[in-house]
Design a protein around this nucleic acid. Structure first.
Lengths: 135, 135
DNA sequence: TATTGACCTTATAGTGACTATATAGTTTTA
DNA sequence: TAAAACTATATAGTCACTATAAGGTCAATA
């Protein structure tokens, strides 16, 4: 199978496949005489794994690490679980930070109705004075 | 005041100040004979405004837009409020997306205890099969 | 047979908001 | 006088792609 077909199956761009190859996430495929890449099912599986990881917002570095674990199947999987735990913590921190930000934005928004001049805009004044932390 | 002092007051790096200048967010300062930048209080206020906006996670483009409004103080402030409303929506979408992701990650994590071999790791299996959307 | 169109190749630059590094000139302090 | 601390510019790196340029290959059509 050539790169276009693999891309279509995986639902991504051919560029992205070449990019993953360059990043060492996909094994180098064989080439036809004309230089075209030829892929097999293993490549498809690898690519699916990468995409699933990306949907979970794991970084390419983390994915590389997971692939190294997969290549050593008799190790304990403690490190994999630890990575996931840390990633969950990371996501939770992001959520908390964004929720705090949301509160600040909403309280700032409450400083103005829509019927003023820029000069008197409560939002702009709030930003200028840096008092967007009030509740 | 020179760039180092301004940076210290604003709590940011001198590089960042030069970067904002290049991005058109800070007016060009006067220069000493030796080429050193000289800043006044207006620059400090501008910089504080930028930093407050960045804390609110507004993009540099949005900040530029807000600055254009400030330079035209007798317009109505509707657009400013609209920008903030849209930004709030944006933040709320991010929160929702991350909360969904968190659920997926937690359910994936529940597929494995720490006492298996990589080969049998429920987390890795879950990623490979792409079934990280189950609750 | 010529050419069109779809596919493939590599290399390079752009995104956003910085941050780091290199190289060099200036001022202040010891 | 020399070292330390500051300033200047220019360039590259971060992350995970995405876009563009310039060209080679192949099958079908006019």
């Amino acid at each position: 199978m050539r790169i276009g077909q693999l891309a279509q199956i995986a639902g991504i761009d051919t560029q992205t496949i070449r990019f993953y190859e360059k990043q060492g996430l996909l094994p180098l495929p064989d080439r036809q005489q004309n230089g075209y890449r030829i892929y097999n099912e293993k490549h498809g599986e690898r690519l699916a794994f990468i995409r699933h990881c990306r949907i979970l917002d794991l970084s390419l570095t983390e994915i590389r690490e997971l692939q190294r674990y997969q290549d050593d199947p008799h190790q304990p999987c403690t490190a994999v679980n630890a990575m996931l735990d840390e990633h969950i913590s990371h996501v939770q921190s992001q959520i908390t930070a964004l929720q705090t930000l949301e509160k600040h934005l909403i309280s700032l928004r409450a400083c103005c109705n829509d019927d003023r001049e820029i000069e008197a805009c409560g939002v702009l004044a709030g930003i200028s004075e840096g008092n967007m932390y009030s509740q």
